[in-house]
Amino acid sequence: MIIRYLLRRLFLLSFVFVAATCFTFSLNYFYPGDLLTNFSGIQQIDDAQRQTLAASMGLEQSVVQQYILYVQRLVAGNWGLSFATQQPVIGEVQTVLPATLELAAYALLVSLVIGIPLGLLAAIKHESWFERTVSTLSSIGYSLPVFWWALLLIMLFSLHWGLLPTSGRLSVLYEIPQVTGFMLLDILLAPVPYQTEALRDAIRHLALPTLILATYPTTVMIRFVRDSMLEVLAQNYVKTARAKGLSRSQVLYHHGLRNALLPVTHQVGLQFSTLITLAMMTEVIFSWPGIGQWLISSIYQRNFTAIQAGVLVISSVVVAVNMFTEILHTLLNPLARKDA
């Protein structure tokens, strides 16, 4: 049963992948300029090269054949050269993607760590001053435009108090070789004498962007957890458990929490695409060298190969995360498991 469910999800995933690649493949025909250049990213193609390239891309064959070759190239990791740097795009993605994932992961973590307890507390202390404060704050946080909020915090924390740096992942004087692409991990792996110092510096660089990126998902999480908990507490089985003599905390822990938190896994997946969009803005404001900033500057430079790669990678990551949380949700939730 569960195997069939997973296969069905996998099939859906591959369908999304086909749709995305069809889209990026057709972009090559819509972009202005030479088709070969759009596909390969090579700016100056001489005649000999032109022939071998055209043959390897099957340009004389049907469009379907070309598409198959295109997908084969994608799978083989041959994503063409960046128009701007003439370096393989896949290498650039490997440097920028971890930066975004790192930022998004910490923001998500913060939103879970802060959002879930606050939401639960707000539900338990229903209609108290505490709930009202939390609700008001989360409404404000929910409606703050991210770029304005970011500038406000930069002004206070960086320019006014001088506590935190305004941009980047690490002070440029520290030289940390890229191994995993995740800054904190890379610092721990780097054989440098200034490890602790660099670590502190990296965390200070992370603080503001994480805080800003976490604002929106935290408020969503608070509201969602609160509502879900309130709903669970109103259920008959909770009332029954109380009536049978279980203490309030026992009911909350054994019956309330698990049922209230189940939909949260699902919610994380749904929030992820918003998170990535917000991450792009945060990256631009903080000059964070992630995939969002990279994609936006590629659009600006009409760097077609990079745009394709960026679109494919971001959509794949979003879909994959969605799929993963959905599967997780199904595995954790007996009701959903039964439906599957």
């Binding site: 770029f147 320019l159 108090w161 001088g162 200034y194 631009v284």
Partner: peptide
């Protein structure tokens, strides 16, 4: 527009500030 907004807002905000120094590195 993002850059534009950033620039305008930052320029406005900068005007009133005289910030303390960030701790310097030993490198």
């Amino acid at each position: 527009w993002l850059l534009g907004a950033t620039s305008i807002a930052l320029a406005g905000l900068l005007a009133g500030c005289n910030p303390p120094e960030l701790s310097s590195t030993t490198v």
